[in-house]
Amino acid sequence: MHELGIVFEIQKRVSAVAEENGLALSDIAQVVVEVGEASTIVPRYLKECWPAATDGTEMESAELVVELIVARVSCKKCGTVYEYLKNDRKCPNCGAWECVMVSGQEFNIKEIAVFEEGED
């Protein structure tokens, strides 16, 4: 259960960020994370583990939102930038396999949404 450990790591990071910004954990409505397609993290499992990790904590009411970042690579032979998984890893232009990852390995906390009363 690789995602459970990762969910605890998200929680730790969110707690640190909340403290830096003077936010109460119980006010957090949403945590938005960005997960690269090639990051070895499975969004579905991440979402399933989230309640297990936050249950009974101050962050209990926070929802986890996962945004997927498409894996893009640049072909080492011809320089074409293409979607890695959609093209079955192979360069659609020249057919080469060798490539450099451009995006898709991210694992970031993008933003935190906090409940606010009254004013907008």
Binding site: I6, E9, I10, K12, R13, A16, V17, N21, L23, A29, Q30, V33, E106, F107, N108, I109, K110, E111, I112, A113, V114, F115, E116, E117, G118, E119, D120
Partner: peptide, 16 residues
Amino acid sequence: MYKVYEIKQRVFESND
């Protein structure tokens, strides 16, 4: 109402 805080930090940053 929500207020959104942009964070843009790597999850593994504390550990790293």
